[in-house]
């Protein structure tokens, strides 16, 4: 089980656990506010935008070009922005903190 912590726009901190799928799916299954995952994870809706805590950015890695093009035109984009549907859950992410961007 991998532990993931989300901080919502209302500053609520929620820690959940999962072992497969993407971070977006984990968030949607746990009804994390601000992560809707409208397109089901195909990089078309940007309703799964998160800011990765800087110290975890290296493990998470940078967005692909297609993802980056989506992020570029979304609200509140920073250098720590990722679309959470594009981040598969894996052991190395255990303990990570993600801030919901919108």
């Amino acid at each position: 089980m991998v532990k993931i912590t989300f901080i919502t726009q209302e500053n609520e901190t929620i820690t959940v656990e999962g072992n497969s799928g993407s971070i977006m799916e984990l968030a949607v299954n746990n009804t994390i506010k601000g992560i809707d995952g409208d397109c089901g994870g195909v990089c078309s809706c940007a309703t799964c935008h998160v800011h990765v805590a800087p110290e975890y950015m290296e493990v998470v890695g940078p967005p692909s070009e297609i993802e980056n093009d989506m992020l570029e035109l979304d609200d509140n984009v920073t250098e720590y922005s990722r679309l959470s549907c594009q981040i598969p859950l894996k052991e190395t992410l255990d303990g990570i903190v993600l801030k919901v961007a919108n």
Binding site: D38, C39, V42, C43, S44, C45, S64, I66, D69, M70, L73
Partner: peptide, 21 residues
């Protein structure tokens, strides 16, 4: 099963389709 599918069939940005769900 197209994995990366950043389509705009429902529009994009402010006016994106309200009926999409």
């Amino acid at each position: 099963d197209r994995k990366m599918n950043p389509h705009v069939a429902f529009g994009f940005s402010h006016h994106k389709c309200l009926g999409a769900t």
